[in-house]
Design a protein around this nucleic acid. Sequence first.
DNA 1: CAAGTTATACGAAGAGCTTCGTAGTTGTCA
DNA 2: TGACAACTACGAAGCTCTTCGTATAACTTG
Lengths: 131, 131
Amino acid sequence: MSGIKPSTPKPTAAELEILGVLWHTGPATVRQVHEVLEARKGAGYTTVLKTMQIMADKGLLEREDSSRAHVYKPVLRQEETQRQLVDDLLEKVFGGSASQLVMRALSGRRTSKKEMAEIRRMLDEYEGGRR
Amino acid sequence: MSGIKPSTPKPTAAELEILGVLWHTGPATVRQVHEVLEARKGAGYTTVLKTMQIMADKGLLEREDSSRAHVYKPVLRQEETQRQLVDDLLEKVFGGSASQLVMRALSGRRTSKKEMAEIRRMLDEYEGGRR
DNA sequence: CAAGTTATACGAAGAGCTTCGTAGTTGTCA
DNA sequence: TGACAACTACGAAGCTCTTCGTATAACTTG
């Protein structure tokens, strides 16, 4: 029952922002990512560059350096990273109790009827596929 | 529609472990917390002491120093901290979509029938109390 | 080709987290 | 009271994260 060591480390806050851009736009150069993050939060160019280089070193990003401006893309898909992060929270903060986590997620904010319906739909689907 | 700044900062990993002990045992001295954490992960005494002092400075813990061995207790209840952390994840990783979060939480692990039933029960309760 | 533009690479500073050694204080008890 | 045990306080080291300045290499164009 031992935990499986993730092949890629858990992304940090700044890394997550970069991943967010790349998931949205697809593979991109530093310049392209920088344009988005500069508008969003005034990030400096070399800051973004350095972070993306570190991410490539860590195995979070893959780098295509055949052209002069290197093109980066995430190694893991968004769903996989989301799962990794939510599992981490589940373990450390909720002792593995998914129902507790769901309860807290819902109690924190006014969840819309639409959201609730969507959650029910997913529960049905998930259980349907399982049993 | 701006975010409300939390009165207490988000606890770190080590701080969360200490909070976990205090939520479980109730108000306790450094020694008592240390006994648990030493068994669990070999934590040193002054390490626990220092961390708890820092937490008191940050406003995560309250300190009762009338007796020689100071007694600490969490400022926020477990539910509040859980909500704070899950809201943070929801915002940063799921763009506020609770249904996405729930989906990822469930897809990550083989969730038991009991857990699923519990989640459904909570959905019913939540919606019942709302509408 | 010279000058300017657009890239990457490198190093380092500043901040926060975690850990622990050491010093000093207060209480206990033979 | 003298010695030991139980506490707190303090400071600093090692680490990671984040940011940015500077150096350098590669294109572009007049």
